[in-house]
């Protein structure tokens, strides 16, 4: 179970994406993605940390960009958090699930700041 303080969301989209990753990705696009993290992983992170509309929008843009016309490479999901310290990890079973890496240098306590989400590996 996730702790109540955790900002991680859970909804039908997350279920569907996980379902796709587990059962369907092998048929359609396994290993076809041009980015890291892959489109499905990017979508999953977005739906976990952003609201549905932002997450949907970002996912659609990402998939549209995932073709040979655009550059490939690293593209981490971005999230807004009201975060005081620079590195704050959510822990479960003492394993780091993800890192929030601030995009801007000037972190102020009261404003919402932009962070990259990087999955713990």
């Amino acid at each position: 179970m996730l702790s109540k303080k955790s900002p991680i969301k859970y909804n039908i989209f997350i279920f569907l994406i996980k379902f796709y990753q587990k059962y369907l990705s092998i048929l359609f696009g396994y290993g076809c993605c041009r980015y890291y993290p892959t489109c499905s992983e990017y979508a999953l992170m977005n739906f976990k940390h952003n609201n549905i509309f932002v997450a949907s929008f970002k996912t659609i843009i990402r998939i549209l960009k995932c073709n040979p016309i655009f550059d490939s490479g690293f593209d981490y999901p971005i999230v807004n958090h009201k975060q005081k310290s620079i590195l704050n990890t959510y822990k479960r079973n003492k394993k780091i699930i993800f890192f929030l890496v601030p995009i801007n240098d000037n972190i102020s306590g009261n404003k919402r700041n932009k962070f990259y989400i990087i999955k713990g590996i």
């Binding site: 290993g31 076809c32 993605c33 041009r34 980015y35 890291y36 960009k65 995932c66 040979p68 490479g73």
Partner: peptide, 22 residues
């Protein structure tokens, strides 16, 4: 996956056609 992506980036090779064409 991350290490491979770094390698591809270095050699300017995109691994696949991408999700959109699929």
């Amino acid at each position: 996956g991350a290490a491979m992506m770094a390698l591809y980036k270095k050699h300017n090779a995109s691994p696949m056609g991408g999700c959109l064409p699929i």
